[in-house]
Amino acid sequence: MRVVIAEDDAVSRRILETLLRKWGYEVTTTLDGEAAWEVLQGPNAPSLAILDVMMPGIDGLELCRRLRQSPGSMAPYIILLTATQGVREIVKGIEAGADDYLTKPYDRDELRVRVQVGARIIELQTKLAERVSELEVALNHVKQLQGILPICSYCKKIRNDLNYWQNVESYVADHSQAEFSHGICPSCYETTVKPQLESLQISVSAESDLSN
C-alpha cells in the first residue's frame, strides 16, 4: 500500500518514513501541503496520507478540506499529526475531513495500529467499490432484458442496440447468463417436423421404387 507523508520537520519526517517502510508500506515524502496535494492528485495516488497539521503554505487542515471537496477520485484515508494537544484540536481536524488524529510525540505501536486500521478500511472501500461496479454492470444487462424490445411479428427476430435484426436465441444469450439446450415442442413436432419426416419417407420410398 502506498502512503504519502507531508511533514516540514526533517527529523519527524525521517522517523515516520523509516517506521512506515519497516512496516512494509511504500512511502512518498513531501515537505509541505502543496507538494502532498500534487502527489495525491497524480496518477496511482497513495491511498493513505499522514499529514502534519502545521506546515508552511497549505497546512494539514486545509489539505484535508481540499481532498474531501475534490470531485472524482476517491479521497485517501487521512491521519493528522500535530504537536498540539486538546479535544478542540481533534474536533477541528476531524471536521476538516481527517479520518484519524495523533499527537506528537506519538507511541510507535499506536501509530502502527492506526495505520493498520486505515489500511483495513481502504481495503474494504476498494472491495465495496468493485462490488458496486460489478452490480452496476449486471444491472445494465437486466435493464436491457426488461425494457421494450422491438421484435419482428413474423420471423421473431429482435432489433438490437446496433440496429441489426438478431434472432431471439442469440440476443438472449448475448444479454444474459442464460444458455440454451435444444429440443422440439409437441406442437412444432405435429405441425412442422412430422410432415417433414412423412415427406422425406415418401421421397425415399419413391427413389427405392425407381431403382428397383
Binding site: D8, D9, A10, V11, S12, I15, A83, K104
Partner: peptide
C-alpha cells in the same frame, strides 16, 4: 510560535 512549534516537534521526537 511557528518556529517554537516545529522545534518542539523534532525535539520531542528525539
Amino acid at each position: 510560535k511557528r518556529a517554537a512549534h516545529t522545534l518542539r516537534g523534532s525535539s520531542g521526537s528525539l
